[in-house]
Write a protein that binds this DNA or RNA. Structure first.
Lengths: 256, 256
DNA sequence: AGATTGACGTTTACGACGTAAACAGGCGGG
DNA sequence: CCCGCCTGTTTACGTCGTAAACGTCAATCT
């Protein structure tokens, strides 16, 4: 259900091709042997993408790399730090995305648009990692998911200030923008996860999904089942940009 | 830093009093002995609130109840189900909140306002539980965090339809509303968690938080450190309600 | 009343986990 | 030739979730 004529979602990994640029740069990646922090983190990302964070253990990740669990400890202090490294590495893919700009060379709206889609591409490429990006405690209160680095925060604030925002408005924009991204993308990856995993239980009318007590829900179920996430993302982003534009207009030069 | 004359946040648990209505109803809760699923779930919520999900083990929860770990299995199928039960129980606190209405007796905007603040109160009362509410896989794709029940979904849709929204618009509103709530509240509890836990590292200029490479950030740091979450929640909610009002105006009677 | 049953908590046990510590091999510089 | 160091392995410990067997006591039945 829920497919008509629709252009494909350009943020989806399979349509964008290039199956797996996992890390943005570095030496040409030697063959099998020679462990290395980058290779460990890359393997962990791959493993989580494939099996979910719950299945990730040091022993299994070791096996995935053809090595004993304890070998990983030469490159990573422990499991928790490994996961922190995974989160950081995945977000660092933004630097390798040619459609995302670190500087707002075409205005702040273009900057926010590109950045939003870049983060969305990451979320959709690593749906099992994104909840970690959202929930790992940031290193400082002003570092917010899903942009978790000082560098992106600096880049964001510079883009807004360069676009004419007052200092205070730039900060407000930062908070509104991260809220929007996090909320939308968390729900999108969560929803996509549900559609895939309970493939075994094929719609039998179990006692739980008897909708007879919920007449409105039953009536709207076809609408609810339609997947409009891409359009809704665009729409909400557009709305946010307009809201920020109003904010800009109301505080310009007043440098609150 | 970051406190001036400000009225206290009415969604904060300590200002609202009534320290811990954990479950909305049931028999008057017998004294010490007599285990019971409600008591197990209540103890688990308490435990997570106090120590975080990472510390929750069956043995420790048993000890917290004066019982061996295996006794819990009479009331809960296993640890994962226990956590599912915690999530459900915490969200069920909404039913016990007198300021949240299951029916939109004063219009849809009032309904959405009350519901939003009710969910926010829950998030702030259980900041360690809220990420679980956000990340546990829902039982169906149209059940979205943070409202995770058919009953609230039905209630929501009825409120919107009763307010004049078309079926399609009601669904759009549902998705926009849940995104907003989830994004804002995830960031709010995440931020609050960071302020509290690294109390041991008292602001020494370590190599990591040297902001000399980030001039804009350094300049805006005082603004970034200010906690305006309550006002921003209100502001974003207001904005969403206006957006939905526009949606209502544009589709009224057209019953798309 | 005494026997029976069922509910409920405990004990024991197993395999998997994260990780500390000791160990082993191989390779480059003296 | 030997001596470190770099890197992966082995061994070991305490903790985890949970299956299975067991104990105990109160309610029920004859």
């Amino acid at each position: 259900m829920a497919d008509r004529y629709e252009e494909p979602d350009p943020d989806l990994p399979e349509v964008r091709g290039g199956a797996g640029i996992v890390l943005p740069a570095g030496p040409p990646a030697t063959g099998r042997p020679g462990l290395d922090r980058r290779r460990v983190l890359g393997a962990a990302i791959e493993f989580i993408d494939e099996h979910g964070i719950g299945e990730l253990t040091m022993r299994r990740l070791g096996a995935h790399l053809g090595v004993e669990a304890m070998a990983l400890y030469r490159y990573v202090p422990g499991r928790e730090s490994l996961i922190d490294g995974v989160v950081e590495s995945v977000m660092d893919e933004l630097y390798g995305d040619p459609d995302v700009l670190l500087e707002a060379t075409h205005g702040w709206q273009d900057y926010l648009q590109r950045l939003a889609h870049g983060v969305r591409r990451i979320a959709l490429a690593h749906p099992e990692v994104f909840p970690l990006i959202a929930t790992r405690p940031p290193s400082a209160p002003w570092i917010r998911p899903p942009l978790r680095s000082l560098r992106w925060l600096e880049s964001f604030l510079q883009a807004m200030v360069a676009g004419g925002f007052s200092d205070a408005s730039a900060v407000v924009a930062y908070r509104a923008y991260t809220s929007f991204l996090l909320g939308h993308l968390m729900l999108e990856v969560s929803q996509r996860g549900v559609q895939i995993s309970p493939a075994d239980a094929p719609e039998g009318v179990g006692p739980a999904d008897d909708l007879s007590d919920y007449p409105t829900l039953r009536r709207l179920k076809p609408l609810l089942s339609q997947d409009e996430t891409a359009a809704e993302f665009e729409e909400s982003l557009e709305n946010l940009l307009e809201r920020l534009d109003r904010l800009l207009a109301s505080t310009r030069r007043r440098q609150d």
